[in-house]
Each structure stands twice: as C-alpha cells, then as structure tokens.
Measured scan of single mutants.
Amino acid sequence: HSHMSHTQVIELERKFSHQKYLSAPERAHLAKNLKLTETQVKIWFQNRRYKTKRKQLSSEL
C-alpha cells in the first residue's frame, strides 16, 4: 500500500469535485501528472465515491 502525498490528494480531490467518474484516458493522464499508477487513481476514486455515498445515506437518516 503506497502513501499519497498531501499534494496528490489535493489534486485528486479537485478533480473529483468536477467529475466523479474518469474515463480511462483521463485516468491515465491524471496518474501521469501526479506520478501515481492508474490503479491508484482508480481505487482512490472508487473509495471516494463510496465515502460520498455513505455520507449522503447517513445524512438522510
């Protein structure tokens, strides 16, 4: 499990705020920019979407 830097997370968050789903080319581009693997980016987005979904569910209770 590799640790992401604060800067990388900020960039991922910024991208996520604009779009929740990335196409393969977008993911490849973002990964390259942030010096991450595409898998890391993919998993981060999956986890981030899951967290957002959970938060929405709990706020509706």
Rank of each mutant, 00 (worst) to 15 (best):
S5V: 02
Y50K: 15
S17N: 08
E60M: 14
K15Y: 15
K35I: 03
T37M: 03
R49K: 03
K20A: 07
L22H: 01
Y21K: 05
S2I: 11
S59Q: 12
Q46A: 13
H1M: 09
L22W: 04
I43E: 09
L34Q: 00
L22C: 13
K42H: 10
Q40F: 06
W44V: 00
Y21L: 03
F45W: 07
K42F: 06
E38D: 14
A24N: 08
E38F: 05
S5D: 06
M4T: 03
T39N: 11
W44D: 00
S17W: 13
T7L: 12
H6T: 08
L57V: 11
R49G: 00
H18K: 13
S2D: 11
H3K: 11
H3P: 10
K35N: 13
K32Q: 13
S59C: 15
Q56I: 08
Q56H: 11
V9C: 12
N47H: 14
Q19D: 05
Q40H: 02
L22V: 05
L34S: 02
S58C: 15
H6I: 11
H1V: 09
Q46F: 07
L12G: 02
T37I: 03
W44K: 00
L22G: 00
E13P: 01
F16Q: 00
L57A: 12
R54V: 10
E26D: 05
H1C: 15
S59G: 10
M4P: 05
L57C: 15
Y50T: 09
L22Q: 00
N33A: 14
S5Y: 04
L36W: 03
K53V: 08
Q40A: 05
R27I: 12
I43G: 04
L30R: 00
K55Y: 05
Q56C: 15
Y50F: 08
T7R: 10
K32F: 15
T37N: 03
Y21S: 06
H6E: 09
K32V: 11
F16P: 03
V9N: 04
Q19F: 09
E11V: 08
T7Q: 12
S5K: 04
Q46Y: 10
K51S: 08
N33Y: 14
R14K: 13
A24M: 05
Q46G: 04
I43L: 13
T52F: 14
R48W: 06
S5G: 04
T52S: 13
S2F: 15
V41K: 01
Y50N: 08
E60I: 10
T52P: 15
F16G: 01
T7V: 09
L22I: 06
H1D: 09
N47D: 07
H18W: 04
H6C: 15
R14N: 06
T7N: 13
A31M: 02
F16K: 03
S23T: 10
T37P: 02
L36Y: 02
S58H: 06
V9W: 15
S59D: 10
H6N: 10
H29V: 12
H6V: 11
H29M: 10
A31I: 01
F16N: 04
L30F: 04
K55H: 09
E11Q: 11
E13G: 02
H1L: 11
S58Q: 13
Q40Y: 06
L30V: 05
Q8N: 02
K53Q: 06
L22E: 01
T39E: 14
S2G: 10
Q8A: 06
Q56T: 07
K20M: 08
S5L: 05
N33M: 14
A31S: 05
K32N: 09
S59A: 09
K51N: 08
H3T: 09
S5W: 05
T52N: 13
K20F: 03
K53I: 10
L34T: 03
H6W: 10
H18N: 05
R27Q: 09
A28D: 06
A31C: 08
L36G: 00
Q56K: 14
Q46N: 07
S5H: 04
Q46L: 05
Q56V: 06
S58V: 08
I43Q: 11
M4I: 08
E26L: 03
H29Q: 13
L12V: 02
Q19I: 08
N33S: 10
A28V: 08
R27K: 04
K51I: 07
V9H: 06
H6Y: 10
K55R: 04
L61P: 10
S2N: 10
R27V: 12
V9E: 08
S5C: 12
E11A: 12
N33Q: 14
L30T: 01
S58D: 09
T7G: 08
I10M: 14
K55L: 15
K42P: 00
L57T: 10
E38M: 04
H3R: 06
N47F: 12
K15A: 14
M4S: 00
Q46C: 13
K35W: 05
R27W: 06
L12K: 01
H6D: 10
L36S: 00
E26W: 01
K53E: 15
A31K: 00
L30A: 00
A28W: 05
Y50W: 12
W44Q: 01
T7S: 11
L12T: 03
Q8V: 07
L57M: 07
T37L: 04
H3V: 09
R54A: 07
K51A: 14
Q56Y: 13
S2R: 10
H1S: 09
F45A: 00
R48H: 07
E13D: 05
H29K: 12
S17Q: 13
K15T: 14
T52G: 10
N33D: 13
E60C: 15
L12H: 01
Q19C: 15
H1P: 07
K42M: 09
E60R: 03
K51V: 06
Q8C: 15
Y50R: 15
H29T: 13
A24P: 10
A24D: 03
K20E: 06
T39V: 13
K32H: 08
H29P: 02
E60T: 05
Q8D: 02
H3W: 12
H3N: 09
E38L: 07
L30M: 04
K55D: 15
R27H: 02
Y21C: 06
F16I: 00
V9T: 09
K51T: 08
I10L: 10
I43S: 06
M4V: 05
Q46D: 06
R27L: 11
V9R: 11
H6P: 13
A28N: 04
K42N: 10
I10S: 10
R48T: 06
K53T: 08
L30Y: 01
L30Q: 02
I10C: 15
L61I: 10
H3L: 10
R49V: 03
L34M: 03
V41D: 00
E60G: 14
R49N: 03
P25I: 14
K53L: 08
L61E: 09
